[in-house]
Computed example of a mutant assay.
Amino acid sequence: MTNNWIDLEVATPGLVVDLAVLDRNLDEMAGIAAGAGVELYPHAKTHRMAEIGRRQIARGAHGLCVAKLGEAEAFAAAGVKRLFVANPIVGPQKAARALALSRRVDLLLATDSADAARSIGPTFAAAGATARVMLAIDSGLGREGVSPAQAPDIAAAVSAVPGIELVGIYTHEGTTYSAKDGPDLTGKAQAAARLMVGVAESIRARGIALPIVSLGASASAREVAHVPGVTQIRPGIYAFNDVGQIALGNATLETTAIRVIATVVSHPEPGRACIDAGSKSLSTDLVPASAHRDEYPGMGLLVNAPGWIIERMSEEHGWLRWHGTGEPTALPVGTRLEIVPNHVCMAFAMLRRASVVEGGTITTSWDGFGPGSSE
C-alpha cells in the first residue's frame, strides 16, 4: 500500500485511492460471496465512478446496486449490464425512464407499497413489458420498507399489479452500524439475515416464488452472506473502507484504500488550526456508533497528526483542536495531513475526482458522475 500519501503530487483537498488496496478489498468480498454461494451487487452509490464500477464487475461482482435511476443510467452507459436501483421509484416519468433502461440492461427496481407499484406498472404493461421489482423490508432502521408483519399482504398486493413481477425482498440492515463490538455486530447481522429469510418464507407461503433475498451493508456483509436463505449481498464501503469500518473491526489503516489529503492553512494558537478540507470535502459525519466516538472522535482520522482532531467544520474549513496529552504538537502552515474519512461515500460525493496511486505514484484520475446522477 501507499506509505507516502502526503508526498503525492495532488492539489488539496484531494481524494486519493490506492489501487492495490482497492483490488485487494474487491477480491476479498468477491471471494466471500463466491464461497457463500450468493450474488454480489456492490452498492456503487459509494463512489459513482464508471471505472470503479467496471472494476468491481471484472473482479467478481454479478452486478451493481445503485440509489437512483440517474446512477443506473450512467453505469449502463459505462457498460454495466446488471443493475438494481435499491430505492423506491414512483410515478410515470421515472417509470418511462426505467422502461427504457430495462431494454438495455437486466434491471431490478424497488418498491415498498402497492400504490408505488401501481404508479409504474401501467407504463410497463402498456409496452408489453414487465418490471422486475424487489420489496423493501424495514429490518429495524425505520427508513423505507414495510414491516415484516405487513410484508406478505403487501407482497400479494404488489404482485397483483399489471406490469409488475415481484422477484425478491431487500433491506439495508443499517442497525448493524450501532454495534458496540465484534460479538454484538455478529449478533445483529445474523438476526437481520434470519429475519429476512423468515419474511421470504412467509411471502412464499402466499404462492409467490420470490427467488431473491438481499441484504446490504458493509458492516454486516461478511456475516449475512453465510446465513442459509440469503441469496444476495450489497455492500458498498468495503471497497475502500473508512473510519466507521475501522471502528467496527472490519478494516485497518492498511486495508483502507482511500485518503483525503489536506493542507494546514492557519495555526493561530498552539491548540487550534484550520485545514482546507471542510464539509464540502469530508462531511460532518461522526462514526456511526456512539460507543466508538471516544476512541475515534471528530470528523475524520488525522493519521499523521496524533492528538489532533477535526472538531468542527464549515464548508471550506476543518477546525482542528488539540485533544492529546501534554503540549500541542506544532502544525506549521503548509503541513499536509493524511485523513481517513469517517464516511467514505460522502468524500466521493463531495470531491468527485480521485487520484489513483499505483506503486507509490499517481498514474491517472477518475471522475465521478455529473449532474443528473442523483435524479
Rank of each mutant, 00 (worst) to 15 (best):
S102P: 03
H317R: 14
D106R: 12
R293A: 04
D112L: 06
P162V: 08
V230E: 08
H323W: 12
S102V: 03
L185K: 11
H323A: 14
G249Y: 12
L135R: 04
S365G: 12
L101A: 06
R222C: 02
V197F: 10
Y177R: 14
A116L: 07
I258M: 10
G334S: 00
V303C: 05
G359A: 09
E295H: 13
T176D: 11
R353F: 04
D112Y: 13
V264W: 07
A349C: 07
V340A: 00
D115F: 14
G360I: 04
I212V: 15
R353A: 10
L337Y: 01
G370N: 01
H343I: 09
M49C: 02
L185T: 05
R54L: 13
G145L: 04
A257D: 02
D367V: 02
D27F: 01
A347G: 01
L15S: 00
V356C: 02
N4P: 06
S355R: 10
A78K: 05
K180V: 15
D276G: 15
Y41T: 05
T361Y: 07
T252K: 08
P288G: 09
M49E: 01
M49D: 02
A289Y: 07
K94N: 10
R336V: 00
S218V: 02
I203V: 15
R336T: 01
V16F: 03
R132Q: 08
K94C: 06
A277S: 13
G60P: 00
E73W: 04
S113I: 07
R97P: 09
G278T: 06
R55Y: 06
A156N: 09
A20P: 14
H62N: 02
S147C: 08
G187S: 15
T325F: 11
A225C: 04
G168Y: 08
T252F: 05
L108M: 14
G334V: 01
P371I: 09
T325H: 13
V16P: 03
R293L: 06
E375D: 14
G63P: 01
S281Y: 06
L141E: 14
E51V: 10
A50Q: 02
Q190G: 12
V333E: 09
A305N: 07
P92H: 12
N3K: 14
A289T: 08
A156P: 08
A30H: 00
G229L: 10
V90K: 11
M134I: 14
I120H: 01
H62M: 00
L141V: 12
G174E: 12
I309Y: 05
L351I: 13
L301N: 06
A96I: 09
A200V: 08
V357M: 04
